[in-house]
Amino acid sequence: MRALLSRAPGGPETLELADLPDPAAGKGQVVVAVRACAINYPDVLIIEDKYQFRPERPFAPGGEIAGTIESIGGGVEGWQVGDRVMGVIGHGGLATRIAVDAHRLYRLPDARSFAEGAALILTYATTIHALLDRGRLSAGQSLLVLGAAGGVGLAAIELGKAYGARVVAAVSSEEKAAAATAAGADATIVYARAPFDKDQSRALAEQFKAAGGRGGFDVIYDPVGGDYAEPALRSIAWEGRYLVVGFPAGIPKLPLNLTLLKSCDVCGVFWGAFAARDPDANQRHVETLFRLWEDGRIAPRVTQRFSFERGGEAIATMAARGAIGKLVVEIES
């Protein structure tokens, strides 16, 4: 097998394509011939040793895959060799084969491509947990989505609309605004690139407030962080919920007096820990996502595809915050 390996902390340029022994399926595992691996922001962090988890090196990044089962270990039921599967595995996906715990996998519908399958679960499962469990979003409420043209951002637009919210998408370019509108956003805001001085921060807050209306936003979905966070928080409604999802623009420092003045909640969203602590609730969410996918109410947007050899380039594109929708590396096993 071949894998794109991280041997030392660093950027995408440090990854090395290497030949390794084929994996064997242990108890409760299957070996998947990987056909597609989606790239997400954790892949940027994990190779730099900046993520919550630090795998033992060498390791391959890539936490979201689709492919076919090649072999099955002991104690595995419900799967057969040749079955098409998709799942979130943490890391190791930028490889031609990987041994995976069978409980991490879901059946890939016959009508869906490997690229679509690899692009679904992480962003949408994170987002449905965020909006429903942490944000308590309901029909008729207003939702502000920052970084709205990225994978989780587009997922938040689609799921927000599926649950009856008015969705305002905040993005950094007109091209991204068009993508957000195509995903169903009711309105868009194009903001400048941070860092911001005080006047620029105040002006962005006024943009958000104008879009939120007199009542403000019931839920704010923030996968960006940095200097965008405080202006967004200033537009929140009374007893609103601010969802902390990620920090590609940096970890913000929020003035907590705003939470008192608005009686609002600042809620962390850590989907991986939620899924591990409450697998039954997560399974119900995933089943809901599959129904919405089948009904055409959500659909992962794979906007760029990369060959296996260009996997590092896919991670570099994600690191530059230039991605619209999902980036997928396609792998010939």
Rank of each mutant, 00 (worst) to 15 (best):
D110I: 04
A111I: 05
A111E: 12
R112F: 10
R112S: 05
F114I: 03
A115Y: 12
A115C: 13
E116Y: 10
E116I: 11
G117A: 11
A118Q: 06
A118W: 02
A119N: 06
A119P: 03
A119K: 02
A119G: 08
I121H: 10
I121M: 15
I121N: 04
L122Y: 07
T123N: 15
T123R: 02
T123E: 02
T123G: 07
T123W: 04
A125T: 02
A125W: 05
T127L: 11
T127N: 11
I128G: 01
I128D: 11
L131Q: 07
L131W: 10
L132M: 15
L132F: 09
L132Y: 11
D133F: 12
R134L: 00
R134W: 00
R134V: 00
G135K: 03
G135P: 01
R136D: 04
S138H: 13
S142V: 04
S142G: 07
V145M: 05
L146Q: 12
L146C: 07
G147W: 06
G147M: 11
A148T: 01
A149S: 14
A149Q: 02
G150M: 11
G150T: 08
G151N: 06
G151K: 04
G151T: 08
V152W: 08
L154E: 04
A156D: 14
A156F: 12
A156E: 12
I157T: 11
I157D: 09
I157W: 10
E158G: 05
E158R: 11
L159S: 05
L159N: 03
G160T: 08
G160L: 03
G160K: 08
G160C: 08
K161Y: 06
A162F: 06
Y163R: 03
G164H: 14
G164I: 12
G164T: 14
G164Q: 14
R166S: 09
V168T: 13
V168F: 09
A169N: 08
A169Y: 10
A170F: 10
S172Q: 01
S173Q: 00
S173P: 06
S173F: 01
S173G: 08
E174A: 15
E174T: 10
E175D: 09
A178I: 00
A178F: 00
A178C: 01
A179M: 00
A179C: 01
A180N: 00
A180H: 04
T181Q: 13
T181P: 00
A183H: 04
A183L: 01
G184A: 11
G184K: 05
D186A: 15
A187W: 09
A187G: 13
A187Y: 09
T188I: 10
T188V: 15
I189N: 05
Y191M: 06
Y191A: 14
Y191W: 08
A192C: 09
R193A: 14
R193S: 15
R193N: 13
A194F: 03
A194G: 15
P195F: 09
F196Q: 00
D197N: 15
D199N: 15
Q200I: 08
Q200K: 13
S201T: 15
S201W: 12
S201Y: 14
S201L: 14
R202M: 12
A203V: 04
L204Y: 05
L204F: 02
A205N: 05
E206C: 02
E206G: 04
Q207T: 07
Q207K: 14
Q207D: 10
F208I: 02
F208V: 03
